[in-house]
Design a protein around this nucleic acid. Structure first.
Lengths: 337, 337
DNA sequence: AATTAGCACTCTCGAACCGCGAGTGCTAAT
DNA sequence: ATTAGCACTCGCGGTTCGAGAGTGCTAATT
């Protein structure tokens, strides 16, 4: 692929990204003063189409990039747009908060990203199930209820209000909790259920009813509920390719299916910022979309991802640098854990 | 309005509700064997139109009910559909949970209602700001963070993780919390800020920095955040009147604007189950919709509402009885508070 | 040999047109 | 008071048509 073809492919891609209209040879020659005539451009474009980088929506319309074209653009042609100072300020400011709750960070990040990119954004929180159980603790709230505080090795906590039978007093409960923490500390939350149920594992629960109760408390609500936040889903409606009600249904439906999102993201879990273009994704509901995702860390461990979903003609350069910065800042902010 | 007109209005309304197509005189005579000819029906319908109960989308199409027509239908004609035993079982079962968290109930209720009605549903939780402050308490989590437990008179709690400067130890903090609870107990959460800031109110906070910090903890996150849950927003796409992308945008946009929803609901806050039809609502974004809402209680006090949003041709009878049952059961389940 | 001008051709899109069918309102008969 | 009959209206789907944008090919030009 020679320089001229690269230039043309780049021009077509960028023009289509900003206009959403198929690009013709004349427009290209005029707008991007390439120093060659429309006829030459036509020939080059015909080649690019033969090679699979461009497509024609129908005979004798302009060209648009194929998925392969976008891929080449992202990998080789695209100029990364640096994040401006003002924006950088804003991002940093967002994380200057007194609140130290994971959920808060997740929500804020999703909102922030959707807001500054103009696309829907999803943030995946660390999987609770993969966390390593560390300790357990009860705090009395009133005669019937107690607050159960579960803690993982990473320093994350979950609080749950549970109703406690009157015949159990708090001191007993917390003694139990200490034994429990000693016994099961180091096991992942996901495996906790099996360990508790295994009759050989421990004599802690001679009282079967009690075992049931604790198990109920620990697993209630499903461990991976609330793992995901979507912000700005409706921004997708601003893009003309989603004027079709059925496409809208598919994409917005995807946002509601936590499992689908998780599955999609697990299939592409490389560290850092990556772009996924249309058919490169396995999930059918979003084949009209592209996705840019970035991993973030707690300590040195990758625990979650920030992602942006947009039309295939996404502003890749801008979105990718934004996500790079945001995921870095988020990782910084989560160092406390 | 004589019996025959009532019968006709009812038939038109019910036919339109189930078919979404304007109803003509011939169809009406055939389907509902009223014992009168299409011509007579036409005359009656012309009257009903003159009086404002029916409308014609365009000259010489069938009739559809106007807002006034729906109103009359709901108030006078509609047969309330009793909730079947199976459904009742399901509703009751939903609330048989060990989990005692308000938020959980709110979410479950929204999901449940949307699921059994097939329309989007919104649940408004009790306003935190209107709750009466009762007590405050700190529980240490690690060296840098503490869990702040705020409690209202109604028995609701909010937990927040806050970062505590190392120089404050927990014992000090909890002494402070006790003084604080004694001093400000009985004041609504909304007024708490002013009371703390009023320099005459108390000598508790001679340390200005500390006052700032506590204030920040108490008010962080905005007290009325997370007050609202939407379930099944996309079910609205199943109704043909929302084939238009702009209508979809307006309605789904409404769901995202917590303030708009709250404002709308505060304008119609009567106790019990009520229906609001199209133009009866002040909010412009949902004038293509109808809303059925029901209040629920904690103790004897109305604290929140369950609502269903659908097309104007909603299944009023069914939805209203469902909401009646659900809001009752929810109130029952919240008796613990 | 590469580039370009010229030209015939293709295809979409919007506007105009048309006939069908569903439904009405009015009049006259029952 | 009701109904049969009939002329009339209007939306909808299909067709036609011309304009416009863009192409591919060929022949001329550099």
């Amino acid at each position: 692929m020679d320089t001229r073809k690269r230039t043309i492919l780049q021009a077509v891609t960028e023009d289509y990204i900003s206009s959403a209209e198929p690009v013709g040879s004349r427009t290209l020659a005029k707008k991007y003063h390439l120093g060659i005539s429309p006829a030459t451009i036509r020939n080059e474009m015909a080649d690019l189409e033969d090679w699979g980088f461009l497509e024609q929506p129908h005979t004798s319309s302009g060209r648009i990039p194929s998925d392969k074209g976008y891929r080449f653009y992202v990998d080789e042609l695209m100029a990364k747009v640096p994040v401006g100072n003002q924006l950088l300020e804003r991002i940093r400011f967002t994380y200057q908060s007194r609140i130290r709750e994971l959920e808060w960070f997740i929500h804020q990040t999703a909102k922030l990203v959707s807001d500054i990119t103009g696309y829907p954004s999803i943030v995946l929180a660390p999987s609770w199930g993969e966390g390593i159980f560390s300790s357990l603790r009860f705090v009395g709230v009133d005669e019937n209820n107690a607050l159960l505080i579960i803690r993982t090795k990473d320093g994350f906590t979950q609080n749950r209000t549970v109703s406690v039978p009157r015949e159990l007093n708090l001191v007993q409960l917390n003694t139990l909790a200490q034994d429990f923490s000693r016994e099961f500390g180091g096991i992942s939350m996901r495996d906790l259920q099996d360990s508790i149920l295994d009759p050989w594992s421990t004599s802690l629960f001679e009282n079967v009813a009690l075992r049931q109760m604790v198990l109920g408390w620990l697993l209630s609500d499903g461990p991976d509920d609330e793992r995901m936040t979507v912000a700005g889903p409706l921004t997708i409606l601003n893009y003309p390719e989603f004027n079709d009600i059925n496409k809208v249904r598919r994409v917005l439906g995807f946002f509601e299916q936590d499992k689908a999102v998780e599955q999609m993201i697990q299939a592409h879990s490389a560290e850092g910022v990556i772009a996924l273009i249309g058919s490169e994704m396995s999930v059918e509901d979003i084949q009209d979309c592209s996705v840019v995702t970035a991993s973030y860390r707690v300590g040195s461990k990758v625990v979650g991802r920030v992602m942006v979903v947009g039309p295939r003609r996404m502003q890749y350069g801008y979105v990718m640098t934004v996500l790079e910065v945001v995921s870095d800042e988020l990782s910084q902010a989560l160092k406390w854990a």
